[in-house]
Design a binder for these strands. Structure first.
Lengths: 147, 147
DNA sequence: ATACAAATGCAATAATGTTGCATTTGTATT
DNA sequence: AATACAAATGCAACATTATTGCATTTGTAT
């Protein structure tokens, strides 16, 4: 897991690069997500942002960020959306093909393991694979104390 | 994909085997799911069952079926729950560890590919994997006509 | 400084999931 | 076959999550 630190200036630039206006709510969302050590759920974001950002605005921000390839969405085992900042590999129209994530069944966090390699998967005849999404569930290092 | 046909008698036996009472709603749910060639979403089930089964009852049936290992739940790319009949390998307390599914981005169907083998995945230190969930998205054979 | 499109916030509504409780129903027992 | 009881269902109410329309505000190009 490589820690990446962003500064507010970077966020502004990131928005600009994507033809998005630099607004408070958007910077806020990026802040929170960048500070989290794991992908963060939409409800959690909602709580953290609180009254600063309207619920609807949050939905819309997340949607546009996803479309622009700024964030990627990970559906966890409960079907809840989690968001994380995309690696630079993610482009607008074609997200990086292979997303690997770890969903802790205790703390519910979703960690990105994008750098793990994966074999090629056999697909049935006539089926065309566009994206591969691997979700491993279990206990993360923090929830697995050797006590 | 191996086609498995069930008769009503089998369903009754299946329920009995799991210490579940043989009721109309339960048989109905099993019917619908067995007839589908793919995993079926909870909302779709709700529509098909219609007034025959109360919405709450449906939720509860699906939950107990999942707990008993009769059905397994697949979360698709939208975070919607899909249900399919478990392979005989699935046991009550320990679902078969590896679920492989294909989510068609056109018709939205979720196909089970449980028989595909998978390499062992590298997990970060301190992390313990309990279950692996692989969801491949793309076009299924029906939505990929060579027209 | 202005103008305009983009973004936000609010209100209303839809869709989805949950809980408590009274009633019904399957099944083991006699 | 009748009974008794736990299990299952259906209903109502509610909680949560997601969407849509529209008026207002705001960022930015000019």
């Amino acid at each position: 897991m490589i820690a990446v630190t962003y500064m507010e200036k970077d966020f502004a630039h990131l928005l600009q690069k994507n033809q998005l206006k630099i607004t408070g709510p958007r910077l806020g969302v990026l802040q929170v997500i960048a500070q989290s050590d794991a992908a963060i759920t939409q409800p959690a974001l909602e709580k953290i942002m609180g009254a600063d950002v309207d619920r609807v605005t949050l939905y819309r921000i997340l949607k546009t960020f996803e479309e622009k390839g700024i964030l990627h969405k990970v559906i966890d085992l409960n079907g809840t959306a989690n968001y994380a900042i995309c690696s630079p590999k993610c482009t607008v129209h074609e997200h990086h093909d292979e997303h690997f994530h770890f969903n802790c069944i205790n703390c519910k966090k979703v960690y990105c393991l994008d750098d793990t390699p994966l074999q090629s998967i056999k697909i049935p005849k006539g089926f065309i694979a566009k994206d591969i999404n691997l979700l491993i569930s279990g206990l993360c290092d923090k929830c697995n104390p050797p006590e």
